[in-house]
């Protein structure tokens, strides 16, 4: 087997090993990076920054373990910003049961850092099935339709819910999701009650979500891990996304390198074969 044929028939497991190496290296050496901030991410940051202390933010979370790599960093960055601004936070999952627990873990870890207390500054409404029918009732009577929080405590008596009865009392809405679950909020909350909404989606959902930004249905958009890195940069801290972004860049470079190498080898081998068939020598 000559070298050109070898390049085209490299075993996939060798490529996986190289990918693993490329992903691991940045965990030992983290260079200083500055990424350009996309206007959609900047808009999200500005909208949350304009909120006043004690404003009420609905934190829609609809991601599970399958997209933890992107959605966790987005959730953490947005929650940090809200806590930094001393906003009230209500977590609610309508599209993915795992989300309530995964976000609860993040909120519990951050509450110590920002002096937050569950029930006083933030609440976790838990998971609600059948989102669209549920939201129809929810917008009219939030404490009544929620009933109890994730711990089984009635939400109506919690200090965090003071002055919150209908969807009109919500100051800002967020949905962090790998699906189109944010559409349910647009259909039944944002559109009907004219509430401002920001969305954080996985990179695969990005192209679709930009329509909503263009039509002003949402006021800010964070796309994938890259969006989370930009948000961390705006907040001025290095979190999981910044760490992961360097690994991601290394992996992308490696994949691009492999694609170029494979294609160049294929073209050269074709030429070589053509020369041989015409009676030349290799």
């Amino acid at each position: 087997m000559n070298f050109l044929t070898f390049l085209q028939t490299v075993d996939r497991r060798f490529l996986y090993a190289m990918l693993l190496l490329a992903v691991c290296i940045p965990f030992f050496y983290t260079p200083e990076i500055r990424v350009p901030i996309q206007p959609s991410t900047q808009k999200m940051y500005d909208e949350i920054n304009e909120l006043k202390e004690n404003d009420f933010v609905l934190f829609g979370v609809d991601w599970g373990a399958g997209t933890r790599g992107e959605s966790r960093a987005q959730t953490e960055a947005l929650m940090r910003h809200c806590m930094k601004k001393k906003l009230r936070i209500a977590i609610m999952a309508i599209g993915e049961p795992q989300a309530k627990q995964l976000t609860q873990t993040i909120a519990l870890a951050l509450q110590k850092e920002y002096g937050y207390e569950q029930g006083v500054n933030w609440v976790n409404f838990g998971y609600k099935a059948d989102p669209e029918n549920y939201l129809k009732a929810w917008v009219q009577n939030i404490p009544g339709s929620i009933g109890v929080d994730i711990r089984g405590v009635p939400v109506a008596t919690m200090p965090v819910m003071k002055g919150i009865t209908t969807a009109r009392d919500i100051d800002f809405m967020l949905d962090i999701t790998p699906t189109s679950s944010y559409e349910s909020y647009i259909k039944f909350v944002q559109g009907s009650f004219n509430r401002k909404m920001g969305v954080a989606v996985t990179s695969v959902m990005g192209p679709e979500a930009f329509n909503r930004l263009d039509s002003n249905q949402i006021v800010g958009l964070i796309v994938g891990l890259q969006g989370a890195v930009e948000y961390e940069q705006l907040l001025g801290y290095k979190g999981a996304a910044t760490r992961a972004s360097i690994s991601s860049s290394f992996a992308h470079l490696l994949i691009i390198g492999f694609i170029i190498l494979g294609n160049v080898a294929m073209i050269l081998e074709r030429r070589q074969r053509a020369r041989l068939s015409m009676g030349g020598t290799a």
Binding site: L19, V23, G66, T67, R68, G69, E70, P178, T202, S203, V204, G224, L225, Q226, A244, S247, S248, A251, H252
Partner: peptide, 8 residues
């Protein structure tokens, strides 16, 4: 990009 994020 999404799958890589999961691996990372």
């Amino acid at each position: 990009m999404g799958r890589l994020a999961l691996l990372i």
